[in-house]
Design a protein around this nucleic acid. Structure first.
Length: 879
DNA sequence: ATAGGGTTAG
C-alpha cells in the first residue's frame, strides 16, 4: 500500500502514506429509505390471505369456481367485495369489467383500490380509477383518499399528488400519506415542504406526521429543525406516544447525538420492543457496537420479547466488532426463536462472516439460504472486495446479472470498489456502462465510487468527466478528486482543486490527508505549513492519518526537526508513523538514527512490514551501513518471512555497489529469484560510475538498455562513465546512439519556494527572474572556485554538446540557478531549500558545498533520491 | 386507512 521507493525516479516523493488508504466511511447511518423495500412492515400479502396468490394454483381455482356459484344470487357490489376480501384481484377485476357500466357503491371501488394498493398493481388501479370517472362517481371523502392511497402505494406519487391537490377535503391522513410517500423515495425535501405547508394551514398533526418528519430531518441531517419538531411534540402532548418517542430516539442517533437518544430512552415510561431495537441499532450506527450488544443482553435479562429486528441489530453489532463467537451464540438463539430462516437475518449472518474475513463461511450461508436477494449478492461482493479478492467480486456482479437480479446502487459501489482495488479499468468501464444504462450516475455515492475507481485505475480524465457533470458534490466527491490527483502525481492539480473547493466545502480530516502528500511531493513547505495551521485551528490533529501525513510532509519538505517534534508528540505511534520517520532519517542521510528508530519501533511491539523494511534498507544504503543492511535483509526473510521484492533488492544492490563490492552485487542480481528490472541494474550502474569500473559498466548497461531502451538517463550515465575514463570514442558512439533514437532527454528542472511562491528554473531556459544578477553571481563563484583549485571538471558536463554550450552560457544547471536565486532572495540566516526533479549533478554538488562555506549559507537540496544538506563546505551525503 | 426499530455502499 505504501511507499513507492524507486530511488531513481521522482516517484519516491509522491506520497506514500497519507493517501487514502483510509477506507473509513465518512458518515454512518445515512441509509436512505429505498423504494420498494421488501421488508416494510406492511406485508404484500396479509397473513389471512397469504396462501392465496394471484396466479392461482389449480386447487384454489376449483375452490373459487365453487364460490362463484354460491354467491351468484348476491348483488354485484357484494360479489366484487367478496373476491376482494379473498385477495383475488383478477376475479374482482373481471367482474368489475362485466358491470363496467353500472354505478357501483363507493365501498366497492374502495375495496378494489385497496387490493390494487396491496398488490401494487398500478394497471388495475388505473382501470378502476377510469371506470369511476367514466361513471361520474362522486369521489369526495373516503374514495378520494383510497385513490391517493392506491397511487402512492404503487409508487406513482405524481398522480396521487394531482388528486390530493384538487381535493377539497384534505385530511391529516392524506397529508401523512403523501409526506411518507416522498420520504420513501428519498425526496425528503418535498416531505419537509409539505410539513411546513401543514404548519401554515394549521392542519392538526398527529403521531404519524411527527414520525415521518423526524425521519426526514434525520436523513437531511438537520438537527436544528428536528429539535424544533421535538419542542412541538412536547407542546402538543405527544411526548408519551411510544412511536413518536422512538422516532425521536432514532432521529438523535442518526444525527450522532447518542446522549440525547439515551436520555429519551431513560425517561420513557413504557418502552416497547422498537424502543429497545432503536437503542441497539443507534449505538451500532454510532460505532459503539459493544454498547448496542449490552442493550440486547439487557432485553434478554429483563425478558423483553426480542424480535427479528433485535436479532438483526445484535448481529450487525457483531459484524462491526468482528465477534464471531457472539454471533454464533446469537445464531443459535435465533434458531430456537425461529428467526434463522428469515432473509434479513441470513443476510446479516452472511455479512458477519464476510466482515470477519471468513469468505468460506459467507459462501456457506449464501448457498444454504435457499433464496438469495440483492442484499445477499451485494454482501458477498462487498466481502470479496474487502478481502482483496477483486476478481471474485467482479465475477459475482456478472453472475447475478445473468441470474436476472438487477444490481442496485449498493451493488455497483461495491463492485466499483473491487475494480478500484485491482486497478482494472476494463472491468470498471463495464460497470460504468451498466450505471449509465440504469441512470444511476445521478446518485451521489455512485458517482463518488466511479471517480474513485477511475482515480485508482490511473485515469484522472475519466474521473474529471464524472466530477464535472455532478450537479451536487459532497465533501467525499472533492476529497476523492484531490486524493486522486495526489496519488497520480498531479500535485499541482490537487492543490488547485483544493483551492477551488474552499468556497463550497470546508476541508475535513480526509481532505488534509489528501492534500498534504501533494505539498510533500512539490516540497511546498509554506503551503504545507498553512495547512498545518488549518489543522490546528480546526482541531483535526487528533486524527492518526492527519498526523502521519503531516509528518510525512515535513520530512519531504526538508523540515526534519519539525517532523521529529510532531513524531515525539504522538502518543500511540502506529506502523506508518514509525515507517515515515525511518524513511525520513534515511532521506536526510541519518542512517544511524534510522537504525535506532527501527529498534525502538520493535521495542514498542510494532511488527515491521515490507514497507518499513524498504525504509530501513534504503537508510542503510544511503548511509553506507553495509553490515546493518545485510542484517536487516536477513531478519526480514528469516524472522518475518517477508519475501524481498524488487525495491528491497534495489536497496541491497545499491548498498553493495556504493561499498565498491561490484562483482558481489553482480552475482547478487544474478542470484535473484525474481526477474531484476532496470532499476535494480541501474543501481549497480551508478556504483560502476563511482568506482570507475568501465568493464562492469558495459556488462551492466546491456541489461539496463534492454529493459528500458527509452530511458535516456541510462545512456547519459554510461556516457559519463566513458568520459571519466577519457574514452572519448565511446562517448561519441553513445551520443550518436542517443541522437539516432531521437530520445528526448528529461529536462532538468529545479524550484525554490520563497514566501509561498514557487520559482521554477528549467535547465537550458534563459528566461528566469533576476537573470542578470544570477549569472553574475554564478560567474563570480566559479572564478573563486577555480582560484581555490576546484577546477570545474569537464567530465561533469559531458552529456550533450549543445547542452554544454547552453549550460556554459547560463553558468550551469537548473539547481545552480535556483540556489543562486535563493542566495539573492533570502536573508543570510535562512536555509536555502531547493528541489530538483532529477539527481543533482556532480558539479552543482561541488558548487553547493563551496557556497555553503564561502558564503556561510546552509543549503538543503532535495533531488530525486534524497536530501543533500550543505553546511560549512560539506554535504550530509558524504559525497 | 398512514408510522417508529432491522441486512448491502462511496
Amino acid at each position: 500500500m505504501l511507499l513507492t521507493t524507486k530511488t531513481s525516479s521522482t516517484g519516491f516523493w509522491v506520497c506514500p502514506f497519507a493517501n487514502n488508504s483510509r477506507e473509513k466511511p465518512l458518515k454512518n447511518g445515512t441509509s436512505q429509505a429505498l423504494p420498494g423495500n421488501p421488508y416494510s412492515r406492511t406485508s404484500l400479502f396479509p397473513s389471512s390471505v397469504s396462501h392465496i396468490s394471484i396466479g392461482l394454483p389449480p386447487k384454489a381455482s376449483v375452490l373459487s369456481a365453487n364460490r362463484t356459484r354460491n354467491i351468484r344470487s348476491i348483488d354485484n357490489n357484494t360479489e366484487i367485495i367478496k373476491f376482494c376480501e379473498l385477495g383475488n384481484l383478477d376475479k374482482a377485476m373481471e367482474l368489475l369489467f362485466k358491470y363496467e357500466k353500472l354505478k357501483l357503491d363507493a365501498r366497492t371501488y374502495c375495496s378494489l383500490l385497496q387490493l390494487c394498493a396491496e398488490y401494487k398493481s398500478i394497471d388495475n388501479g388505473r382501470e378502476v380509477h377510469s371506470i369511476i370517472e367514466r361513471n361520474g362517481i362522486e369521489t369526495g371523502g373516503v374514495l378520494e383518499s383510497k385513490l391517493v392511497f392506491m397511487y402512492v402505494s404503487c409508487g406513482h406519487l405524481i398522480e396521487g399528488r394531482r388528486i390530493f391537490d384538487r381535493s377539497e377535503s384534505k385530511n391529516v391522513f392524506l397529508w401523512n400519506l403523501l409526506m411518507n410517500g416522498y420520504a420513501k423515495i428519498g425526496n425528503f425535501k418535498e416531505s419537509v415542504n409539505m410539513y411546513y405547508r401543514m404548519l401554515e394551514l394549521g392542519i392538526e398533526m398527529n403521531s404519524y406526521t411527527f414520525s415521518c418528519i423526524l425521519k426526514c430531518f434525520a436523513a437531511l441531517e438537520n438537527v436544528v429543525e428536528g429539535e424544533k419538531v421535538h419542542e412541538k411534540i412536547l407542546k402538543l402532548g405527544f411526548g408519551s406516544y411510544s412511536a413518536v418517542v422512538n422516532s425521536l430516539i432514532s432521529f438523535y442517533f442518526k444525527c450522532g447525538r447518542s446522549g440525547s437518544g439515551q436520555k429519551l430512552f431513560d425517561e420513557m415510561r413504557e418502552r416497547d420492543v422498537v424502543s429497545w431495537n432503536s437503542m441497539i441499532s443507534g449505538y451500532v450506527a454510532n460505532g459503539l457496537a459493544v454498547k448496542g450488544i449490552k442493550f440486547f443482553m439487557e432485553m434478554l435479562r429483563l425478558g423483553v420479547d426480542v424480535d427479528l429486528a433485535s436479532m438483526v441489530s445484535a448481529l450487525a453489532a457483531c459484524a462491526s466488532i468482528k465477534d464471531m463467537l457472539l454471533s454464533r451464540a446469537i445464531h443459535a438463539y435465533a434458531v430456537k426463536a425461529g428467526f434463522d430462516l428469515k432473509m434479513p437475518f441470513t443476510n446479516t449472518l452472511l455479512d458477519v462472516y464476510a466482515k470477519c474475513g471468513d469468505m468460506d463461511g459467507a459462501v456457506c450461508v449464501f448457498e444454504n439460504m435457499g433464496e438469495q436477494n440483492i442484499v445477499s449478492w451485494t454482501s458477498m461482493i462487498a466481502g470479496y472486495a474487502r478481502e482483496g479478492l477483486s476478481y471474485e467480486a467482479i465475477e459475482l456482479f456478472h453472475e447475478m446479472r445473468k441470474k436476472g437480479i438487477d444490481p442496485d446502487v449498493f451493488t455497483v459501489t461495491s463492485t466499483l470498489h473491487a475494480c478500484a482495488c485491482s486497478g482494472s479499468l476494463e472491468s470498471g468501464m463495464k460497470v460504468h456502462a451498466y450505471i449509465k444504462e440504469k441512470n444511476m450516475e445521478t446518485n451521489l455515492v455512485v458517482s463518488n465510487a466511479l471517480m474513485d475507481m477511475f482515480a485508482k485505475c490511473g485515469s484522472m480524465e475519466n474521473a474529471e468527466a464524472v466530477f464535472s457533470q455532478m450537479p451536487a458534490k459532497d465533501i467525499v466527491s472533492w476529497n476523492t478528486m484531490i486524493g486522486g490527483y495526489s496519488k497520480n502525481s498531479l500535485a499541482n492539480e490537487a492543490l488547485s482543486l483544493f483551492a477551488k473547493m474552499q468556497p463550497h466545502k470546508r476541508p475535513d480530516d480526509v481532505t488534509v490527508t489528501c492534500i498534504l502528500p501533494a505539498c510533500a511531493s512539490l516540497a511546498a513547505l509554506d503551503r504545507g505549513q498553512e495547512i498545518h495551521g488549518y489543522i490546528l485551528r480546526n482541531g483535526l490533529s487528533s486524527d492518526h492519518f492527519v498526523v502521519n501525513a503531516l509528518i510525512d510532509m515535513y520530512v519531504k519538505c526538508g523540515a526534519l526537526v519539525m517532523a521529529k517534534l510532531l513524531f515525539r508528540k504522538i502518543l500511540s505511534k502506529d506502523l506508518v508513523s514509525w515507517t515515515i520517520m525511518i524513511a525520513g532519517y534515511a532521506m536526510h542521510g541519518f542512517g544511524t538514527e534510522a537504525v535506532a528508530t527501527f529498534r525502538k519501533m520493535r521495542q514498542a511491539g510494532i511488527e515491521p512490514d515490507e514497507v518499513s523494511f524498504i525504509s530501513i534498507l534504503y537508510a542503510c544504503s544511503h548511509s553506507g551501513l553495509l553490515d546493518a543492511g545485510w542484517r536487516f535483509f536477513n531478519i526480514m526473510r528469516n524472522e518475518f518471512y517477508i519475501e524481498p521484492n524488487l525495491e528491497h533488492y534495489t536497496c541491497m544492490v545499491d548498498l553493495l555497489a556504493r561499498a565498491g563490492k561490484l562483482s558481489k552485487a553482480y552475482k547478487f542480481i544474478k542470484g535473484m529469484p525474481i526477474e531484476p528490472d532496470a532499476t535494480v541494474w541501474g543501481a549497480l550502474l551508478c556504483g560502476c560510475r563511482i568506482y570507475h569500473d568501465v568493464d562492469m559498466a558495459e556488462k551492466v548497461a546491456e541489461h539496463v538498455f534492454e529493459l528500458e531502451p527509452e530511458n535516456t538517463g541510462h545512456y547519459v550515465l554510461l556516457a559519463n562513465i566513458y568520459a571519466e575514463a577519457e574514452k572519448w570514442e565511446e562517448v561519441k558512439r553513445l551520443q550518436e546512439k542517443i541522437g539516432k533514437r531521437a530520445l528526448k532527454k528529461n529536462s532538468g528542472c529545479s524550484w525554490i519556494e520563497i514566501r509561498g511562491k514557487a520559482y521554477i528554473f528549467v535547465s537550458g531556459d534563459s528566461a528566469f527572474p533576476q537573470a542578470k544578477s544570477i549569472k553574475f553571481l554564478l560567474r563570480d563563484l566559479r572564478r573563486k572556485m577555480n582560484e581555490q583549485g576546484h577546477s570545474s571538471k569537464q567530465k561533469y558536463a559531458l552529456i550533450n554538446e549543445d547542452e554544454i554550450e547552453k549550460e556554459v552560457a547560463l553558468c550551469g544547471h537548473s539547481e545552480k540557478l535556483a540556489m543562486a536565486f535563493g542566495v539573492l532572495s533570502l536573508p543570510p540566516s535562512k536555509t536555502i531549500r531547493v528541489t530538483k526533479n532529477l539527481r543533482i549533478c556532480g558539479d552543482c554538488h561541488e558548487m553547493a558545498k563551496f557556497i555553503s562555506k564561502k558564503l556561510g549559507r546552509e543549503i538543503l537540496l532535495r533531488d530525486s533520491s534524497r536530501f543533500h544538506h550543505f553546511k560549512d563546505g560539506s554535504c550530509s551525503c558524504r559525497g
